[in-house]
């Protein structure tokens, strides 16, 4: 399987580290007082992940290459990369 790095092009999967679903970190918007923000949003961010049979937006790290983190959409049924990667 080869993965499209936005910097290096298609490279072997062994060069990459999987970074999980591409979820937006809400923390920056949270107030410093933890009790002022609901647990639910944070729990969703830390623990809850969709497990779709189909397109999945996810992060990859080109660890043994240019060290770029990028997001890409992969069809979990076929492992086909459906979109151009973005940094």
């Amino acid at each position: 399987m080869r993965i499209p790095c936005p910097c290096c092009g298609l490279r072997a999967m062994a060069e990459f580290t999987y970074g999980g679903a591409d979820v937006t970190r809400p923390a920056a918007a949270l107030p410093l007082d933890p009790s002022a923000a609901p647990d639910a949003d944070w729990n969703d961010y830390v623990y809850r992940r969709d497990n779709p049979a189909g397109p999945h937006r996810e992060l990859w790290f080109h660890a043994a290459g240019c060290r770029r983190w990028f997001a890409v959409t992969r069809d979990t049924r076929t492992n086909a990369f459906l979109s151009e990667a973005v940094a």
Binding site: A27, L32, S35, D39
Partner: peptide
């Protein structure tokens, strides 16, 4: 620190 945001901070309040 209680004065800044950092990775994992929000979880400490659970």
């Amino acid at each position: 620190s209680t004065k800044k945001e950092f990775v994992g901070r929000r979880s400490l309040g659970r």
